[in-house]
Simulated assay, not measured.
Amino acid sequence: MRTTTSMHHHPEQGGILIQSPTLAHIITAQQALQQQLETLKLHRFVHTILSAESGRYSIRFLLHEEIAGEWAPDCDTMQLCTHLQLDTQTSSTDLTREILLAMLLSPVAFEFPSHDELQAAVRIRHNIVTAGRSTAMAFDTAAAERPAEYWTYSEENGFTVLPGQPLIKALQKATQPDDSGKLYSFSCYRATEYVILLGIAQELMASNPALHQQLQQQWEQQAIMSGKFHDVFLREYGSMETPLPPKYYVPGDRLWFRNPDPHSSDIMGYEGSWVFYLGNGLFSNFWKRDQPYTLTSKCLELYHWRNATYHDLAGELQLDESVVEARVSESMQDPVEVERILTQMLRLREPTGVYVEGGCIDTTREYPRWVCPHTADLGLCIS
C-alpha cells in the first residue's frame, strides 16, 4: 500500500508569497495587496510574514489559522461560497474573493515576483472560469474539427490559426457555441488547453501586448500541444509524494479525475477526465455546460463507466453514455449507495498502471505561468 503525506495547512509554507531582491519592492507589493484586501473586506482575516534571506526579501500572506479552520476545514475550499454567501456566478468581485481566499489557504505557496504578476494570475483565473462556463463541444473522442474560416490543419503543425485571424476570436469560435452557433468535436484535454490559452491571451492583450503578438505568431505557425503545452504554459503543484488535500481547489485550476477501473479505462477517452474547477463546488462539464459537475456527480459518472462497456461489431470495447446517465440517476436516489461509491472514489489516485484500491482524485493541480513584462516565464518556441 502506498503511503503519502497529505499537505495540510502549514502557515509557514503556503499562502501567497511575493519575493524580490529589493525591500522597497516588497513594501510596495504589501501595500497594494493590503489595499485590495481592504476593498474586498478580507483584510481582517489575513496576516503577513516578512522575511529576508541571502539578499532576497519576501512577504507571505496567509489566512489566520482559526479562520482557515472555520472556513475551510482540512483545506476544503469547496464550501467557501456557502460559508461566506458569495455569488460568484453574477459577481466578479465575489469570484475575486473566492480565488484569493483559496490561494491564501494553499498548503503550497503561490509564488510571484511582484504584485502585478499576482493580479495577472487572478485575472487569468477569472478568464478561465468565465470561458470554462461557456465552453461546449460535440462528444466524439476520435474526431477533430475547427471553424474553417479561422483554422487550418496540417499533420506537421496541428491546428493553426489562419494569418490575420485573431487568436482570441479563433479560440472563442472553436469552444463557445454562443459565439459560433455550432458545436465542434475535439477531446476534453485539447479543450482545456484552448480555455487556458484563451485566458492567457486575453490577459496578455491588456498587460503584455508584445507577448500577445508572439503568442499570435506562434499559433499561426505551430500549435503547442499535450506535454509541451504543459511545460510551456503551466505550473503544477502538489505531487504523488505530497498530495494536495482531496478537496482543495482554486477557481481556474485544471485537474484530472482518474478512472480507477482497469477495464473501462482501456477505452480511448475514458482513462480519466480533464476539467476546470469553476468555484462554488462546481467543475466544468464541456458536454452539458448548463449542468456543471459537483464532486459527487463527477465521482458517480466515473464510477459507472465500468457498468456501461460493450463490444461493438468490430469487437472493439466501447462505452454507452446513456447507460452511464441512467446508472448515475439511479444511484443518486439512494444515499447509502452514493456514500459507498464516494468512499471508494474520493481516495487519492494510484500511480499510472496501478489499479488496486485508489480512487479518482489526483494529487496535483495546474495553473498558468507568469505573464507580465520583465517577469513572464512562458517559453514560446517560434522559429
Rank of each mutant, 00 (worst) to 15 (best):
P246G: 05
R306K: 15
T352W: 04
M1V: 11
D87A: 01
A24H: 14
P209T: 04
S264E: 00
D76R: 05
Q333E: 10
A24T: 14
P11C: 05
H126F: 00
E366T: 11
I341W: 01
L348T: 06
N127G: 12
L234Q: 12
T152A: 09
D74K: 13
L295R: 09
A120C: 04
T22F: 11
G359R: 08
A143G: 12
S54N: 14
A138Q: 08
S383V: 14
K169G: 11
E220S: 03
E53L: 09
Y367E: 05
C360F: 02
G69S: 13
Q221Y: 08
N307R: 10
R340L: 02
T96N: 02
T4K: 10
D178M: 13
H64E: 11
Y270F: 14
L342E: 10
W370A: 04
L80N: 03
S331E: 01
V129L: 03
L171T: 07
G132D: 04
F233C: 07
E220W: 01
G227K: 14
M1E: 10
P163E: 07
E330F: 07
P113Q: 00
I341Q: 08
S273F: 10
L380A: 02
L380C: 03
Y277L: 07
R97L: 01
F159V: 05
F283M: 08
T352F: 06
L17C: 01
D179C: 15
G164K: 06
Y237Q: 01
T22I: 13
P251V: 07
E203C: 15
E156D: 12
F283N: 10
Q213N: 04
C81L: 01
A138R: 12
E117P: 11
E65K: 14
L33C: 04
K41I: 06
L300P: 12
Q214K: 10
M7T: 11
L197I: 08
D377Q: 03
N259P: 09
T192E: 06
L23P: 03
P246Q: 07
Q218I: 07
E321H: 07
L50Q: 08
S207E: 03
Y57T: 09
L317T: 04
P243L: 01
F286H: 05
A52H: 14
Q119W: 06
G281A: 06
A308G: 05
I16C: 07
F45H: 09
P292T: 06
S51Y: 02
S284A: 13
A72C: 08
E65S: 12
E149A: 15
T309V: 07
T93W: 01
D74A: 15
E12H: 08
K288E: 13
A144G: 14
E111F: 01
V250K: 04
E301Y: 05
H311I: 09
K182F: 08
S265L: 07
I16S: 04
G353C: 05
T141N: 10
K288L: 13
T135C: 12
V129Q: 00
C360P: 12
T28Q: 15
S273A: 11
M137K: 15
R190K: 13
E316G: 12
A109Q: 00
E111M: 06
T39R: 11
A314H: 14
M7W: 07
A144C: 11
R258V: 10
E321Y: 00
V371W: 00
A174D: 02
L319R: 01
R56F: 08
